[in-house]
Design a protein around this nucleic acid. Structure first.
Length: 466
RNA sequence: UCCCCAGUAGCUCAGUUGGUUAGAGCGGGUGACUGUUAAUCACUAGGUCGAUGGUUCGAGUCCGUCCUGGGGAGCCA
């Protein structure tokens, strides 16, 4: 006989009176001297645990059942019945409970049926999925990721698996992690003393990708609507609740599209994901609303129903200047928006997601499309209340001469980007794309305060445990 | 990387202007009791007070340095 998921058992499947087996981990045990015990078992298939009633007649009742502690793994066979107690609709009247795995030292088992600090749980990242919060996060993250794939699939996008190891510095954006098989204690040298990377595995310097964008553009200019979705790496020394050294990024890229088309896509895309999570994770979201962030559900609903505010960077600067707020860094045309500015716009002024478009050329990347007066580029950021920038994107510069001129101005090595320039030499078209950090998305959905808590094993400066 | 805050039992915390033997709740163990709901009650075990140097008759408490964690800023997704 095979086991069923606790999610199904709690829904009354396959039916009252059926004999079922559930397998999972003990959350709590409550004994009755009248001769039986209540064991709450969780298998992660859903938020709730199922109550298993263990009668004293079980042959291992005294020897094992009464010794069960939080975290023990059990396989319970019994009859699915309507619960005689309050608090749950169904429960299992057990006729056999097999202890599959004991907790060796219950005295120091870190996961107790009580509230732990998230800081502490990060130190036991391999056990924290056994808590309510981290189980719920894992399920929401999964549903969000599935919704991302589903949205693009339904809209005719193709998932392109761009490389993780790259030879090109994708955006000149930040420090990269080097990938090398050279012996660090005995590096090969050129005559001038420089390291001889021709001796390295790939015969050149290579790094972990900081973005799949440049690679996915090639497929965009062939398959029209594409996206890349995978791990991304930044060797920045960022110590904040919004940054990880390893994170997952979604990057759609659309041919024959301009910045307005991109803003439409960003808005529809986010709304689709939020709706999917609300629809598929009601219990988990109810938990976040109750215990983590009181507006977790209502603000997602409001985002789904409210049109995003769209405004030019120049308008944003004017609003900030007129706000009368004494910012630490006054807003000024030509300077990037500070975190405090972004928060003011999305949390105070508009109280809604905001799409800021057309930023000054000087503060943005070389591949973004130059406006006619060259003062701005067709870039956009989506700002969300409580988290700040959640999406960054742009219409790409499709004109070869303009792109080359920009690269010269920024003193980029055009040889390394020759393949990228080919895309402008052969059948170039206007195209646009954005990047969305999956963890920032999950942070926003769940209301979790620290990005380290929405990825299973966070990698940050100075820490790569587990 | 910069600024601020914090490290006391397995966990969450209290610990007075420096004072003698460092406390509670939860968790663990033992027992009582009950269709219980993070059950309840009683008893019990459990601590090199982050590390190191200093001030002092005396330091969990004050000072220096370091380590770790958190919040904020910059960079960004």
């Amino acid at each position: 006989m095979s086991s069923i998921r606790i999610k199904d058992a709690l829904a009354g499947r396959p039916g009252i009176g059926s004999t079922v087996i559930v397998e999972g981990w003990v959350r709590t045990r409550r004994d009755s001297k009248a001769g039986f015990s209540f064991i709450n078992v969780n298998d992660g298939s859903c938020f709730d645990s199922i109550q298993v009633v263990a009668p004293g007649e079980l042959e291992n009742y005294g020897s094992e059942i009464l010794k069960l502690t939080s975290g023990c793994a059990v396989a319970c066979r019994g009859t699915l019945v309507e619960s005689a107690g309050r608090g749950q609709k169904y429960e299992i009247q057990a006729d056999s409970i097999k202890v599959v795995g004991w907790v060796q030292d219950p005295d120091t088992y870190p996961i107790q049926p009580k509230q732990h600090s998230f800081e502490f749980l990060r130190e036991v990242a391999h056990l924290r999925p056994r808590t309510n919060t981290f189980g719920a996060i894992a399920r929401v993250r999964h549903v969000a990721a599935q919704a991302i794939h589903r949205y693009f699939h339904e809209q005719g996008y193709f998932w392109i698996n761009t490389p993780i190891i790259t030879g090109s510095d994708a955006e000149g954006a930040g420090d990269m992690f080097r990938v090398s098989t050279l012996d660090l204690a005995n590096l090969p040298r050129q005559d001038n003393g420089d390291i001889d990377y021709s001796k390295d595995f790939f015969g050149k310097e290579t790094f972990l990708t900081v973005s799949g964008q440049l690679n996915v553009e090639g497929y965009c200019l062939a398959l029209s609507k594409v996206y890349t979705f995978g791990p991304t790496f930044r060797a920045e020394n960022s110590n904040t609740s919004r940054h990880l050294a390893e994170f997952w990024m979604v990057e759609p890229e659309v041919a024959f599209a301009n910045l307005d088309d991109l803003a439409d896509l960003a808005e529809n895309f986010l709304k689709y994901i939020f709706a999917a999570v609300l629809d598929e994770c009601p219990d988990d979201m109810a938990f976040f609303e109750q215990r983590i962030e009181a507006t977790a559900i209502s603000r997602l609903k409001s985002v789904i129903e409210t049109p995003f505010v769209r405004l030019d960077y120049a308008e944003a600067i004017e609003i900030l200047k007129r706000s009368g707020v004494d910012f630490e860094f006054p807003a000024q045309w030509g300077l990037d928006l500070q975190t405090e500015h972004e928060r003011y716009l999305t949390e105070k002024h508009f109280k809604a997601p905001v799409v800021v478009m057309n930023y000054p050329t000087e503060i943005k990347a070389f591949y973004m499309r130059l406006s006619d007066d060259s003062r701005t580029v067709a870039a956009l950021d989506v700002l969300a209340p409580g988290i700040g920038e959640i999406i960054g994107g742009s219409q790409r510069e499709e004109r070869l001469d303009v792109l080359e001129r920009r690269m010269d101005e920024l003193r980029l090595d055009k040889e390394g980007y020759d393949w990228y320039l080919d895309l402008r030499r052969y059948g170039t078209v206007p195209h646009a794309g954005f990047g969305l950090g999956l963890e920032r998305l999950v942070n926003y959905i769940t209301g979790m305060a620290n990005i380290r808590d929405v990825i299973p094993y966070p990698r940050v400066p100075g820490r790569a445990d587990f």
